[in-house]
Design a protein around this nucleic acid. Structure first.
Lengths: 132, 132
DNA sequence: ACCATAGTATCACACAATGGTACTTTGTCA
DNA sequence: TGACAAAGTACCATTGTGTGATACTATGGT
């Protein structure tokens, strides 16, 4: 379902959260779908069950999933009841976009090369767009 | 020149590095330009001089600037001698792109709204593109 | 009732991020 | 040529974060 890189500088919890968020955004995980139990996912990923539990709690705090003791964790909201992106959100996204582009450029990646990557990512999340 | 947010979850050093990388990528900082002394920039940003010094060292480690005791720090390479983006780099960029898009979508931001942000960011880094 | 299943709570440890303070190198000017 | 200012460096202390170990509690089936 998803993978984590132990040697990454990104914390394991964040990697898991990011993966699940992406899965929800792409529709791979639908409203009502059940997430694997913390122990199972932890075993699959090779991390401690606490790490997965923390990721689940973080997702719950943002309202993306609902979790209950003894009954598991499942996706609650996908597109509904989303907070309309406020100014802080937009500012953060802009900065991340700039950082992403700056890193691509400074990594020596040609524009066209990066556009291909961008298009692929965008297609996964917002399948409609053509130009990206 | 640049700003940092003390309440951000992104480390101060990383914010500074990111800001300077972006400035180089946009051409705002050119080859040979001198960066402000660590004490001055630290004062301007409201952080400790060590924090700026670490950012400078990190930039030097990637070859973007050259720094020497008693003589200051200046930009050494902008587009030249860049490591041609390898597969790991591309994979990392793809994941970050997906995460960015996923967050935008889950934040409730409409496609068109995000596209505007994206276009703005891209224009700053790679001024040529129109469609982004 | 009992037991398996699923999430939770508490503690411990390691490491990263930041700041305090003192130091070394370089250049300039009297 | 000695002193001083300017600029980066080193080392240490403190605090917070990420991860794991272990034990606990809630739920539901049989």
């Amino acid at each position: 379902m998803l993978t984590v890189r132990l040697d990454s500088d990104e914390p394991l919890v964040d990697q898991i959260v990011r993966g699940i968020r992406a899965a929800i955004a792409t529709g791979e995980l639908q409203n009502g779908d059940e997430l694997p139990p913390v122990r199972q996912l932890a075993g699959d990923l090779g991390v401690h069950l606490n790490t997965v539990a923390r990721a689940y709690r973080e997702l719950q705090a943002t309202g993306l999933v609902h979790t209950a003791r003894g009954r598991g964790t499942r996706v609650t909201a996908t597109q509904e009841a989303l907070p309309a992106g406020d100014e802080a959100t937009r500012q953060g996204l802009l900065e991340r976009a700039q950082a992403l582009l700056a890193d691509a450029k400074l990594a020596g990646l040609p524009r066209t090369e990066f556009d291909r990557i961008w298009k692929e990512a965008r297609q996964a999340i917002w399948p409609s767009g053509r130009t990206s």
